[in-house]
């Protein structure tokens, strides 16, 4: 667990350092993730500590959203006058993204074995 924290915080700060030194328009956390991803690709494997401790951490990811969720509710007076517009934007945008990607993928995968649905070969992946 200790080593996992060192890995994750270390890569996060490395990402933050790189983003700021190179003035990249990317959050440091995303850059840190890419750096870790590249490291895993180069090593051709996941270090034991990350393999063991990351999945249980990810299981409780939603804990981390509570403070900013609380903030959203307490600051929601600023949203009230736009509530109807926001509801339309969120509904339409979610539906548009769902349907556009599903239809496109179905077209692009036409005739591809992935869509032929042969459950037997699936979990070899």
């Amino acid at each position: 667990m200790l080593e996992t924290l060192i890995w994750l915080i270390g890569y996060y700060l490395a990402g933050e350092f790189l983003a700021r030194s190179l003035a990249l328009p990317l959050p440091g956390s995303v850059l840190g993730m890419l750096l870790l991803f590249l490291t895993l690709c180069v090593r051709r494997g996941v270090p034991l500590t990350l393999r063991e401790h990351v999945p249980p951490l990810m299981q409780h990811l939603s804990l981390l959203f509570i403070p900013s969720g609380v903030g959203a509710v307490l600051l929601s007076a600023r949203l009230a006058e736009h509530a109807a517009a926001l509801a339309v934007v969120l509904t339409v945008s979610t539906l548009a993204t769902l349907l556009a990607s599903a239809w496109l993928l179905r077209r692009l995968l036409a005739g591809h074995p992935l869509l032929a649905d042969a459950p037997a070969d699936e979990e070899g992946a």
């Binding site: 990402g15 956390s29 870790l36 991803f37 895993l40 951490l57 900013s68």
Partner: peptide
């Protein structure tokens, strides 16, 4: 609660593992 909030960044980094 900001202790919890700060952990969002390392959690983002951790997503490299399932992605890989």
């Amino acid at each position: 609660a900001s202790v919890v909030y700060w952990l969002l960044s390392p959690a983002t980094v951790a997503m490299a593992v399932p992605l890989y």
